[in-house]
Computed example of a mutant assay.
Amino acid sequence: MNINLQDMNLIDLLSEKHLALRKRVTQMDPDNINKTESHILAVLKIHTMLSISEISRIIGISRQGTHKSIQGLLSHGYVETAEVAGNQRDKHIVLSPNGVECNRKILVIKKQLEQQIISKLGHKNVELIKTLLKEDWLDV
């Protein structure tokens, strides 16, 4: 066990585990997309179509940072721009077929990692963690 984790509060512990898991996913990804790009693809899978500003708000980084990541995803064919009737100002982003396939590969990786976590913590504990994280315990 990492001695540095012993003195951390809940917020920092969750952040550390989140960063470590995102890093592991990107290291195992055959498409070599970074953690921000991976996060954007996951958000687009859920929301189908979003503007760059909306993506920025959801993932919590600057619009400029999001724009740079979107440009990388566009250049590799993982996302496409979409026209929205009545909105000429904002670019809207959708998953391309390559992006859908990339998300599928990343989901396989995530399931493998979840199995590794289950083998260390036990199925019952992982289900408890998932249940607790799904609870509405933040007033945001």
Rank of each mutant, 00 (worst) to 15 (best):
G77M: 00
P30R: 14
N103P: 05
L50F: 01
L14A: 14
N34Q: 04
D12K: 13
S69N: 11
N34W: 00
M49F: 05
V94G: 05
L132N: 12
G86Q: 05
L21D: 05
L13W: 03
H92F: 15
K110V: 07
L14M: 14
V108H: 08
N125H: 10
I40P: 00
L14R: 07
L5R: 10
L74S: 07
T81P: 01
Q71N: 14
L74M: 14
A20D: 12
I109W: 04
Q71A: 09
H123G: 02
L21P: 00
T131F: 13
Q115T: 03
H47W: 08
I58L: 11
E114V: 08
V25M: 02
K130G: 02
S96R: 03
I129T: 01
L113T: 05
L21W: 02
K23A: 11
H123A: 09
I55A: 02
G99S: 05
L74N: 03
K45R: 15
V25L: 10
G77D: 04
C102D: 02
D29C: 09
S51T: 08
Q64I: 11
S62V: 01
I33R: 05
Q112C: 09
V94T: 15
T36H: 07
R22F: 06
D90Q: 15
L128G: 02
D29S: 12
A82V: 04
N103M: 10
H39Q: 09
N98T: 02
E80L: 09
K45T: 00
M28T: 10
K124P: 06
E83G: 06
K23T: 10
Q27H: 04
K68A: 14
K111G: 06
D136K: 15
L10E: 12
N34K: 01
K45Q: 10
T36E: 02
Y78I: 04
H76R: 14
E127H: 06
E127R: 13
K120P: 03
R89Q: 12
L133F: 15
L44P: 00
S53H: 05
I3E: 11
T26N: 01
S96Q: 06
Q64K: 13
I117D: 04
N32M: 10
K68H: 10
I70H: 03
H18M: 10
R104C: 03
D31R: 15
G65Q: 06
K105P: 00
L41H: 02
N32W: 05
L132Q: 07
R89C: 05
I59R: 01
I129E: 07
L41S: 03
I129A: 13
R24T: 10
V126T: 01
N4H: 10
K110W: 02
M1W: 07
L133M: 15
E101C: 03
I55K: 04
G122Y: 04
K23H: 11
L121S: 06
D31T: 09
L95G: 02
E135P: 03
H92Y: 15
L41E: 07
S56N: 05
R63C: 01
R24L: 15
Q88K: 12
V79C: 04
R63H: 13
L107D: 08
E127T: 03
I3P: 02
K105G: 00
K105C: 06
N2L: 09
